[in-house]
Design a protein around this nucleic acid. Structure first.
Length: 403
RNA sequence: GGGGAGAUGCCAGAGCGGUCAAAUGGGGCGGGCUGUAAACCCGUUGGCUUUGCCUACACAGGUUCGAAUCCUGUUCUCCCCA
């Protein structure tokens, strides 16, 4: 802990929406500085999907900032809460996951988290540790800690209630569980997206009731997805996953609307505000390439960043064929006289989920074999080993065929 | 427990006995323009061995020459009363 309170707060404040409260944080930091005891900074992850995307890294990076300042990250793996489904920001009930799914996801999550945080210096706890041991009576007691009216104050519940979208009873329990996690780990600070505000604040309430000092709540913005409108999420398909290939990741970064540039710089890099603002107004496209490169550095290192950039320049700026592409092996039973039906080829390459879709892209001129546009859905094409099949702007495959 | 409303394609939302694979909008996909940005324009969007056939409007039955549309039951949701 080499930095003073002011400096620490300045770093912590970057890109945050709310900090409840700054005075409390100042006090905690001061005490920590004196005693040499790091603050316990809590962040909960529910392993609901197999991947994390950049949206979640916003808050992870905030955690990283604390870690770099010498504080103690406490990562709660919500193995138990994942099985309920956090209703935050949702307009419908989340599916409840099986224990197996959760375990599988948890493992990949940690691996992905390690790209940002130094896992050796992170305390990782599963909240099943305490929830699994609770009796029904204790659950009832916990649920007595809040009221329906208070829960209904929340935007998302209120909206769902107003719109007549069902709210299941178990979803009401979720915020209490998250709050109880804070009690269990004696959090000094809890991080979360703005959609977590209510849950974070409830943590304070519960801690106070338990005689603990309430946690400081820090919320970060919700990162918009590549469509520039909705929040980044896997189910909306507008996400950039941290374990995607460099090519894919670079391309997706380039496809974000310009309007998002400064948000992305602010939340996903540590570049100073003046610098990126200038860059963006000078040359938006250059600024975007630079942003993409910076993001790739975090997940793929220098080599990966270079690879992603070169691929982008080659394929999309110069419109050339990429160096690497998935290979497809042709199913021999579909071949007659060395020829194959174009629709069948597209399906084998997984470029169309149905024959109808294949026919459509073909007749609309989206399909090329070796740069030759194929517009007849009934066409049979000569198979050549190494031929390049292309659909739309970005889907490529190389045909593997030995006669 | 009683009463009322409702369940349509990826989403929202029309249709309320034939002309409905289902209006319209959003999203997606493809094309054009371009900086894989935005904006804009065009096309397309259930499946198939595609000028035709098959499966579809919560589920199961029924009425009818014919049902997304009418009837009965079931499931689920919302609202009001208790």
């Amino acid at each position: 802990m080499k930095q003073g309170i002011k400096e620490q707060i300045e770093l912590i404040r970057r890109g945050v929406v709310d900090l409840t409260s700054e005075e409390e944080l100042e006090k905690k930091l001061g005490r920590s500085l004196e005693s040499g005891r790091p603050l316990r900074v809590k962040l909960g992850i529910d392993p609901t999907a197999p991947d994390i995307h950049l949206g979640f890294t916003v808050v992870l990076r905030k955690m990283k900032a604390f870690q770099d300042l010498g504080h103690q990250p406490v990562l709660i793996l919500g193995d138990y809460t994942a099985r309920i489904g956090d209703p935050s920001g949702r307009n419908k009930t989340r599916p409840q996951l099986s224990g197996d799914d959760v375990d599988r996801h948890a493992a990949t999550y940690l691996e992905q988290v390690s790209k940002i945080l130094d896992l050796d210096r992170v305390e990782v706890v599963r909240n099943g540790t305490w929830f699994g041991a609770m009796s029904f009576l204790e659950v009832i007691h916990l649920s007595a800690r809040s009221t329906v009216a208070r829960l209904l104050e929340r935007d998302d519940f209120q909206k769902r209630y107003r719109d007549g979208v069902p709210i299941s009873l178990h979803e009401f329990i979720y915020p209490l569980m998250q709050a109880y996690d804070s009690v269990q780990v004696k959090a000094d600070v809890e991080l979360g997206g703005t959609d977590q505000t209510f849950n974070l604040l409830l943590g304070r309430t519960l801690q106070k009731e338990e005689g603990q000092e309430p946690q400081v709540c820090i919320t970060t913005p919700i990162l918009p997805g590549t469509d520039g409108v909705k929040k980044m999420s896997k189910s909306l398909g507008n996400y950039i996953g941290v374990s995607e290939s460099p090519q894919e990741m670079f391309g997706k970064c380039m496809s974000i609307p310009d309007a998002l540039l400064s948000d992305y710089y602010l939340l996903l890099t540590s570049e100073a505000e003046e610098e990126y603002r200038t860059k963006i107004s000078d040359h938006p496209m250059q600024a975007k390439m630079d942003l993409a490169t910076r993001i790739l550095l975090d997940y793929h290192g220098e080599a990966g960043a270079r690879l992603g950039k070169e691929h982008f320049e080659k394929v999309f700026q110069k419109r050339e064929t990429p160096d690497e592409m998935p290979r497809i092996e042709i199913d021999r039973s579909q071949v007659e006289d060395g020829k194959i039906w174009i629709v069948s080829l597209l399906r084998q390459a997984n470029f169309a989920t149905s024959g109808g879709e294949a026919r459509r892209v073909i007749s609309q001129g989206g399909v090329r074999v070796d740069d030759q546009r194929i517009e007849d859905p009934n066409a049979w094409i000569e198979i050549r080993d190494g031929a390049v099949l292309r659909v739309g702007k970005r889907r490529f495959a190389r045909i593997e065929w030995t006669a």
